[in-house]
Amino acid sequence: MGSNPPNNQIAGALTYPASSSSNVQRLPAQPRQPRSLQGLLRFAMEATKAEDAPGNSELGPMDEERRRFLEEALKSLTVNVAEVLQRAIKVLTDREKVDSVQFGEGLPEDVANSFDNLSEYIDDLDVANDFYKMGGFAIFPICYSSENEELRTRASAVLAELCQNNPFCQAKALECGLLDVLLHLVQSERGQALIKCLYAISCTCREFEPACHDLIEKGGCDVLAELLTAHEEAARTKAAFLIRYLSHHYPEAKDRFIQNNLVGTITDQVKCGRDSTTEHLLSILHTLIEGSDPRILRQCRDPAIDLKNVLENHLKSKDLQDDTYLEEKEYCQQLLRAVFENCPVEDLDEEIADR
């Protein structure tokens, strides 16, 4: 009863007596991070010293045999990225091999591995640029001409990764005519091939004005408008993101989307019931009405479309009764105010007549 209470210990942290904090014992400071082979050895030995058997743990100069061993060990852990890219390019530009992959077949192991290896490194801008300089863009005409859907899908994923936020590769993709190829393919692709193709179009264009202008001039707005009714939700979402981006930054694109009467297309989609794309579709309408172009306002008020009732009914849907879809609810409310409350019909008629 009169003896001192036992010490309390927290493993791996510090040891202290229960009755006093004056004798706190901290663990020794950890060794510094290594910056050389000698430092690497010292770090390893210091970090594991507590686990070693008692004895002399003094470090002496590193002998040549030990240095060679560590150099080989480090070399075995180092990847030569240039060699990885070269091997992948060699496989994916082998037209005979690529053409041999038939419709519906799985990819040969070396082809699949080549795509995997590229995906692992090309998100680095310098590596992506080196890939082009090594002739890597030669894989795209070969892969895109394949009848195998997975090959085309993987090629689009690689192109998207190369071009995303990378003006150098975006410019090279445009020079190589790859945007033309994508715009042609996206009209016939389905499933994942369509989704990745749209992803590649977005990545080659966004934040790169020459590609955006080229997309608009070559009928890309019409293609994107049609894709708002695609079967795949992910494809509709990607198309919606790009439509909104183009409408916000390029008046000529916005004009083209108004001509395509996206109001009717979007209203029909919302009528069918909400899904993961609804918020993005409503965001397009919100962008299109910016500036109060009388053409878009007239389309919104077309009785045949009945947008006002569609928006009001959507606001009453069970999904929008909590804050989960707050932004979607706000789009509906803002559209109702801007189109049907803040702009009387007579004012709209006068503005149209003036134009």
Rank of each mutant, 00 (worst) to 15 (best):
N117R: 11
L14K: 14
L315P: 03
E328F: 00
P210L: 03
Y132F: 11
K75R: 10
R298K: 13
Y325C: 02
C212T: 04
I289K: 02
L194T: 02
A338N: 14
D180P: 01
C221N: 13
S20T: 12
L198N: 10
R152H: 10
G60Q: 13
V158G: 10
S22D: 14
S156R: 03
L40H: 05
S146A: 15
L27Y: 04
E312K: 13
Q269W: 07
I216M: 08
F131K: 01
C143M: 14
T265Q: 06
I10M: 04
A112F: 00
F140R: 11
F115W: 04
Y325L: 11
L178I: 01
S247D: 01
N4W: 02
N7H: 15
C212F: 06
V91H: 03
E72V: 01
D349F: 02
V158S: 03
V24T: 08
I243H: 02
L224G: 06
L242T: 03
Q170N: 04
F115H: 05
G135F: 02
P54N: 05
Q38Y: 09
V127D: 02
T277K: 02
K49V: 13
L348T: 05
L335W: 11
S36Y: 06
H249N: 08
S76W: 02
A225M: 00
S202V: 09
R67T: 08
E120V: 09
E105N: 09
K97F: 05
H213K: 10
L307A: 13
R337G: 00
F103V: 01
A13F: 15
R256K: 10
L74F: 08
D52R: 15
P210R: 08
V270C: 09
L14Q: 13
G55V: 08
E312F: 00
V91K: 11
S188D: 11
E175W: 00
A338W: 10
V81T: 12
S20Q: 15
L348A: 03
T237K: 15
E312I: 06
S100W: 05
H280M: 04
A253T: 01
L77A: 12
L285Q: 05
E46H: 15
K133A: 14
P294L: 07
I216H: 00
M62T: 15
Y331E: 04
S292N: 13
Q86R: 15
C332F: 08
E71C: 02
I10Y: 07
G220K: 01
K49A: 15
F69C: 09
D354I: 04
